[in-house]
Write a protein that binds this DNA or RNA. Sequence first.
DNA 1: TGAATTGACCGGGAGC
DNA 2: TGCTCCCGGTCAATT
Length: 290
Amino acid sequence: MPELPEVEGVVRALAPIAIGRTIQNVTVSDTVIKSKQLGKEAVIKGITTEDFIVDMAGMTIGNVTRRSKYIYFHLMKDGNTCLLVSHLGMTGAWFTVDSVDDITEMKFRNHVHVVFTLEGGGLLVYSDIRRFGELRLLGCEADHPPLLKMAPEPFATGARKHFLEFAAMPKYARKPIKEVIMDGHVLSGCGNIYATEAIYKMKIHPERTTERISLKRKNELFDVIVAILQESIDAGGSSISDYRNINGEAGTMQDRLKMYGRKFCPACGSATESMKIASRTSVYCPTCQK
DNA sequence: TGAATTGACCGGGAGC
DNA sequence: TGCTCCCGGTCAATT
């Protein structure tokens, strides 16, 4: 599952290869074409497959950036700018290869859905096993309002203030803290893995409601989340399940996780327990987390 | 009007 | 071996 650190790794790997390149043509898998023909919004969102192919051809990639868990391809064509927004969903991955056959892992090679052929050679490939990811071609961010509602980047000035203000709002204050820190309107880019780790480090029970955590502790929690996200970026992300970086390589952060996916608490040895919070599995130590 | 819930999008893999 | 069902990030639609 790619979260913010994993997406950051993809962007850092993708940017130097993609910036300045022009897309010669685009091909879309039969699977996606058939789904779209059935009226489903499979991978390519908000536009027909035909229009996507026509519009993307001739685009020059001016920049590749990250916003929360989204990848933004800043594009130019005929003097106009636009934005290709990519979310990896559960199992999405980008590859830069000379041929699709160069994708070594079969489960990714078998689920290639969009191939951008670049002028001067080389392919930019989007693969997605479960097709939960999305590609959305926009004129600008404002064309897709949910993007404007995202909380500030956790590393940006103002993110702490935003987090504390939103966490104090009644609609969030009465919810479990784990649900609140995973909510992209409150805090950007903290998914289930890092939320699990952060509240474990803070010794906070996942069900504890936000209003029952002091302002001082909420400040500390924010610091812990930011530190964990940064640590994971430095470690190349966590390779849980189907995340791979641009070269199909795995990160090492999963080895540093203290609670996510653990059977026993590394601090006290208690058997961990799990429960559903906001329909996501929350693993916690019943002894340490109160 | 806003909040809460449900549905859509899926294949891998666990469990039986 | 083969079947069933759980899993989950996000948005949209519905209640």
